[in-house]
Simulated assay, not measured.
Amino acid sequence: MLFQVYGSQSGWQLFGWILVFICLVVTNEIARRTKVGGLFFFVVLPIALTIYFIAIYVCAGQGQSWALHNPTYFHMNS
């Protein structure tokens, strides 16, 4: 089920959905309206994340414990 909002925590779950939606709209407007925002979200951020993911993958391949226990590596390809 896509929207599992029920139980005693349903108010917080709905608040989380609304907060994520608002943050996505705000970051979209920043990226769309300003040149600096566009460069950051479409150039700088993807480059930084690519370096981060490659570093974790390579270090996990070498058997380094910090990379093997990193949640990013744990959920890679899942």
Rank of each mutant, 00 (worst) to 15 (best):
L2Q: 04
L2P: 01
Q4T: 03
Q4I: 05
V5T: 04
V5E: 02
G7M: 04
Q9D: 15
S10R: 07
G11F: 02
W12F: 11
W12M: 11
L14M: 13
L14Q: 09
L14D: 09
L14H: 08
G16H: 14
G16Y: 13
G16D: 11
I18P: 11
F21I: 13
I22Q: 12
I22F: 13
C23Y: 05
L24N: 07
I30E: 03
A31N: 10
R33D: 08
K35Q: 13
G37R: 02
L39F: 07
L39E: 06
L39N: 12
F41E: 00
F41D: 00
V44H: 03
V44E: 00
V44G: 00
L45G: 11
L45P: 08
I47K: 11
A48H: 09
L49M: 11
L49V: 14
T50E: 02
T50K: 13
T50M: 10
T50Y: 08
I51L: 15
Y52G: 01
F53P: 00
I54A: 13
I54P: 02
A55Y: 06
Y57M: 12
V58I: 15
V58G: 03
C59F: 06
C59I: 07
A60S: 08
A60R: 06
G61V: 08
Q62P: 03
G63E: 02
G63R: 00
G63C: 03
S65Q: 14
A67F: 05
L68K: 04
P71L: 02
T72L: 03
Y73E: 02
H75C: 05
H75I: 06
M76N: 09
M76T: 10
S78V: 11
S78K: 13
S78R: 15
